[in-house]
């Protein structure tokens, strides 16, 4: 990282730190939802095995939860630049060339995630309008759609930040 002219922290670095905390928080929230899913499933299995009384709707809770977990995980993965690339063909390219290619790849990531964010938001609206619910527990389906939006939004922000950084020549969120 480079220091600003006044020896302090640049705006980009501040943004990076803010985004890092946000991604970290998002990953932890997703992790907690995952732990809750595991706990609920164990309660259901124990109930089924010993009391013939599982949680009716455990499967759909896992499905709904999985969507929220994954969306919450996505920004952290991109922040760590952990989304897979094939380095097979470009391993010997100049670092500057590689950086420009990465900027292009990150731009495509950003645009794709923005498209997905937009469409999932529209999906949430549609689910809200149609009042669709899960089969057994009758949980409104717009909830999991809506709970995907923070993670997807953060992914777009990370993508923007990293694309800008790569174009400018700084290397944000280098692989851990």
């Amino acid at each position: 990282m480079t220091l600003g002219v006044d020896g302090g922290v640049t705006a980009e670095q501040k943004r990076e730190r803010w985004l890092e905390r946000a991604c970290d928080l998002s990953a932890v929230v997703g992790g907690l939802v995952l732990v809750a899913m595991a706990g609920m499933t164990v309660v259901s299995v124990v109930g089924r095995a010993f009391f013939s009384h599982p949680i009716l709707g455990d499967v759909e809770l896992v499905q709904l939860g999985c969507a929220v977990v994954v969306a919450s995980f996505l920004p952290y993965t991109q922040f760590r630049r952990a989304n897979l690339i094939v380095d097979f063909f470009t391993a010997h390219a100049a670092p500057g060339t590689q950086r420009m290619m990465d900027a292009f790849g990150t731009l495509l990531y950003t645009l794709s995630m923005a498209l997905i964010l937009w469409r999932v938001a529209v999906g949430a609206q549609a689910m809200h309008a149609s009042q669709e619910s899960s089969m057994l527990m009758e949980l409104p389906l717009w909830w999991p759609y809506a709970l995907m939006l923070p993670g997807l939004s953060l992914s777009v922000l990370i993508g923007l930040h990293q694309t800008a950084g790569l174009l400018r020549g700084t290397s944000p969120g280098a692989a851990s």
Binding site: S130, Q131, E132, S133, L136, E138, P140
Partner: peptide
Amino acid sequence: VWTLPGYTAGR
């Protein structure tokens, strides 16, 4: 499409 209305509970 061919589907079951019951898949989309509440609707």
